[in-house]
Amino acid sequence: MPVPPPPLALPRMSRRWFSHPGAWNDKAEKITVHFLLKDGSKKTVEAPIGTSVLEVAHHYDIDIEGACEASLACSTCHVILEEEYFDKLEEATEREEDLLDMAPGLAETSRLGCQVICAPELDGMTVKLPSVTRNFYVDGHVPKPH
């Protein structure tokens, strides 16, 4: 039996957005999440319990970046929560806090969107996207004088 020729290249790496692929579950119970967008408008979506805010935003095509794909290496999914809902969440880990230090437009109730997992007690929360600023060091960092 002749052996078919080997493929010319290994198959491309498939895109792996999140640590748990295919986590979007339409059958799960849903909560309401309001997104306060950068232009000031509000978008209300239904989010299944167990998914992260970053996944919800990507599913509904809301502009949150998520460059490191939820591996806690960047602060591009930085969101600002309301205080009452912020208190209901678990404390942020040290690593998350370190990343938040770098986030532009940091507020008291800032979290990383990939670490906020939708739960029943978060029903009705408003997630605010931080306003984009051109100067990355708006958060108090002063460049070295030369």
Binding site: E65, T76, R134, Y137
Partner: peptide, 17 residues
């Protein structure tokens, strides 16, 4: 555009502009 500073994520607002 903005000088040699910042991390990868700083490109996002910059590229958007």
């Amino acid at each position: 555009k903005r000088g040699p500073k910042g991390v990868i994520a700083s490109n996002i607002p910059d590229a958007m502009e």
